[in-house]
């Protein structure tokens, strides 16, 4: 796996990994140049004046200077001209960033509190991860199921808000294989800072391999944890303590839980599996039926890993077997009903 590069102890500059990143950086350096060009003379003048013209006699009355039309004109026009160059530079770069290419491969993005659901043209689905080949233009078509989000990849120097009720677009062409941060940059509520992931830029060959489905050397539980915490983003709702929105999973395996509507159900492999594929059917009491279905996004193999991981949260490490017998020794009972009781004026 490719590793994020951090070049120095204090990071000063993000990686440059898209076709237009250099343009943004050049604009940035130009502006730094302008800033330094203004700052040094002004600060120098201030220091020169406060030393040279320091008070020599209390309450002196220096000669009056009313102003100078020439100077005023000069220092109105020069900043105006410079600001116009900055405007034009920005306009050119912006035009590149937001003019959608015709020949791009399409990727569809749906933002949801608090995960990114991504679907490729070829049918692959991912959560909080985006795999793209290097050197190909990629166009993202984005919307959201709930509030505003913002799809931001600093290494590509681009971002765009994701707005409910309409589509917004973003494009890039990655130039360097690697693993890059993906952020939600528009505040979206409780787990805003958890709505992050990675963009994997791969060589064309690796990308094709990935499309075929990749093989890893992880154990099912490790693989399940990876799915749970990163790839599928389950952790964004199913961890977090008092505020979490999804049912608590620790220590539930092998126990009975109360469902919305009053029934009870034994938590076993079958229940966990059904809850992942058809979450709305049997919702644990005290929680909203807000979980999206993962049908079609997880393979059977991944499902097994997930179930294995969730079982491991209750101390059950065997990957198979029916838990109907001995209840798990770990927990002190379910925590259902304690979530989502936060006050408010709704």
């Amino acid at each position: 796996m490719l590793i994020m590069q951090t070049n120095s102890w204090i990071p000063l500059f993000p990686e440059q990994a898209s076709s237009f990143a250099w343009q943004v950086d050049y604009l940035y350096f130009y502006l730094i140049l302008v800033s330094v060009g203004f700052t040094i003379p002004i600060v120098a003048a201030i220091f020169f004046f406060i030393v040279k013209y320091r008070e020599r006699e209390k309450f002196a009355t220096p000669d009056e200077i009313h102003g100078s039309m020439v100077l005023e004109t000069v220092w109105s026009i020069i900043p105006f001209v410079i600001s116009m160059t900055i405007f034009l530079g920005g306009a050119v770069v912006y035009y590149t960033q937001y003019r959608m290419p015709e020949d791009a491969m399409n990727v569809y993005v749906v933002g949801k509190q608090w995960m990114w659901k991504i679907q490729h043209e070829t049918g692959q689905r991912e959560i909080n991860e985006l795999h793209v080949p290097v050197g190909r233009k990629v166009k993202l078509t984005m919307t959201t199921e709930d509030v505003l989000h913002d799809f931001s990849i600093p290494a590509f120097r681009t971002k765009a808000d994701v707005v409910p009720g309409r589509f917004t677009y973003l494009w890039f062409e990655a130039t360097k294989p690697g693993k890059y941060h993906l952020y939600c940059a528009e505040y979206c509520g409780l787990n805003h800072s958890g709505m992050v992931g990675y963009v994997y830029v791969m060589e064309q060959k690796d990308y094709e391999n990935w499309l075929q489905g990749n093989v890893t050397g992880q154990t099912p539980i490790e693989q399940g944890r990876d799915l749970f915490e990163n790839k599928l983003g389950c952790a964004s709702c199913h961890t977090g303590g008092q505020q979490q929105r999804g049912a608590k999973l620790e220590g539930i395996y092998g126990k009975e839980v109360s469902l919305v509507g009053g029934q009870k159900v034994l938590v076993n492999d079958e229940y966990l599996r059904n809850s992942i594929l058809n979450p709305g059917a049997q919702v644990v009491e005290g929680y909203q039926p807000i979980m999206p279905t993962f049908k079609g996004q997880v393979t059977e193999e991944q499902l097994l890993s997930l179930v294995a991981y969730i079982k491991s949260l209750s101390g059950v490490t065997a990957t198979t077997g029916t838990p109907a017998a001995a209840p798990s020794p770990v927990s002190t009972g379910t925590d259902a009903g304690s979530g989502n009781t936060q006050g408010g004026d709704r």
Binding site: Q23, Y28, L31, F38, I46, I86, G90, Y94, Q97, Y98
Partner: peptide, 25 residues
């Protein structure tokens, strides 16, 4: 004077639309 100078000049960074796509938020 010093701080406002920096604040104002970085305002130019953010007014420059191509750059602010990267910098905003």
């Amino acid at each position: 004077l010093g701080l406002f100078l920096v604040g104002g000049l970085t305002g130019l960074f953010l007014g420059s639309i191509g750059l602010t796509v990267h910098l905003t938020d």
